[in-house]
Design a protein around this nucleic acid. Structure first.
Lengths: 128, 128
DNA sequence: TTAAGTACTAACAAAAAAGTAAGAAATGAG
DNA sequence: CTCATTTCTTACTTTTTTGTTAGTACTTAA
């Protein structure tokens, strides 16, 4: 849980309030959210499908990030009262409005990769 | 300094490598980068101007984030051999290609703010 | 000699994000 | 009664990010 009185939290709020970019980043940022959003961008998925298709994610992180995205109203959680349980996740209408932004980010990431070696030592793809 | 052997760092790299969005987020994400990029988007600025115009940022964070942006080759640092020192920062050509992405993020952040109350208690601007 | 201005740097502390491991509920199959 | 299945929880640790405070270097001006 966060303390809303720390300087850190205060600054986060300040930026969230004053800057659209800051707010967008608060929602799509984080280690796993890009992957989750990318998957759900292509359609509804069950919890287990997400877990299997996102390499390296732990259950705790998957649940946590799904919950945050749900709170931010960009995805929704649909529970089927079956046993064993079935839970599906999908984009909300508001979530779907992220499309252009997600594509712009994805494209620019690729542009950057094509031009710049990253800090892990992967070379850029070269200029020509 | 980071350990490149932690699971955390490994996962970061994995996402950076496989996903344009993840890579873009690594570059523009962080508490202060949106603000810095927004300022430099409008033109060259000196270190001190940036510091004064970005409310709440500490010198340490400003320098750190400028250094990262410089390493990622989206901004450049120009030192004038004067006394007292003068250092200017501005977008590189590659940095300027971020334009559409930054605008998409900014716009979507505003859309989200207009529709959703945030976790700090600010209401959405309402639907009608 | 001392202060002022500018752009930092270093050492440390606090807060937040991410990872690990184990378990829990609900129920049908055997 | 025990096991398997699925979707999570909980408690705890590690790693990373952010913030705080106090300097430093260099020259000019008083």
């Amino acid at each position: 849980m966060r303390k809303f009185t720390s300087t850190n939290a205060f600054n986060e709020k300040l930026i969230n309030d004053s800057c659209g970019m800051g707010r967008a980043l608060n929602i799509v940022g984080g280690r796993w959210k890009p992957a989750i959003l990318y998957k759900l961008h292509n359609g509804t998925m069950r919890y287990g499908e997400l877990r299997k298709s996102i390499e390296g994610i732990s259950e705790r992180m998957l649940v946590a990030q799904l919950r945050e995205l749900e709170q931010d109203q960009v995805i929704e959680r649909i529970v089927y009262p079956e046993v064993p349980p079935r839970v599906e996740y999908r984009m909300t209408e508001l979530g779907k409005t992220m499309g252009p932004m997600l594509e712009a980010m994805s494209e620019w990431g690729d542009i950057h990769r094509a031009n710049v070696a990253d800090k892990y030592g992967n070379p850029g793809d070269g200029e020509k």
